[in-house]
Amino acid sequence: METVTLTIKNQPTLYLEADTITPDNFSGKKASEIAALHAYEGRDQVTLGKYFEVSGEGGATAEDTRIVVKGNVSRVKYIGMKMTAGEILIEDNPDMYTGAWMHGGKLTVKGNVDAFAGIGMKGGEFVIEGNAGNYLGAAYRGDWRGMQGGVIRVKGKAGSDIGYFMNGGTIIVHGNTDVHVGTHMEGGKIIIKGNAPSKVGGQMVGGEIYVYGGIDVMMPGFKYAQDEELEVDGEKGNFSLFHGDTGERHPKRKGQIVYGKLYLRN
């Protein structure tokens, strides 16, 4: 596997939209070709080389390409957008839309990510060692197709509206989240190892939400069903299952109504 290292040398005045930073775009390219790839700063088209020192070269395919992003990238958006394979390691805190519409590969952020990270994600592994912002693994504005596959793991806490319109895949948050978890969720799994204050599973049609800590205010549309012994994220636990959101439509499967499942750890 070949490694390309991007070290930020100039801070953009506006935010830099750098959706070209992916193993797919870097594969088969030399450092100079990578530096010539386009990005946008406001309405101006610029090159990556204007802001980053590029060293190393891409592998033959995306799968063989690893990207390490160094330095303060808090003004850089869209890193890893639509990546299908390979690896990216971001050592600092990137701005919004990190790993958006990711299809595959591995994306690791040592610091925190801002909002809309992993939106519309279809596959791959996305690890955030710090905290995540709002709309993690959500749908793009207006869209009804949120996260559909893959795994997002947040070692810290997450913001509000995570897993909005989630259809598949898994989001694991080790810390607490803010309000609105899995709104409009139709599939997939959200595991919150800390607390979630309120509005958990609003208008949830299907899928599963696990909360290890507490929920301050439950949505009124959830009904207690039973207690269950389950293994979640590799550890066993005893959970109370709630069905919901009963205010929302629910499909039937084999004559049975399918509800969204909200598990509270006992």
């Binding site: 309405r43 088209q45 749908a139 793009y140 504005r141 207006g142 869209d143």
Partner: peptide, 13 residues
């Protein structure tokens, strides 16, 4: 207005 997702990735400068 209500379908921002219809515009996503379609703009030409």
């Amino acid at each position: 207005n209500y379908r921002p997702e219809d515009k996503l990735f379609t703009y030409t400068p």
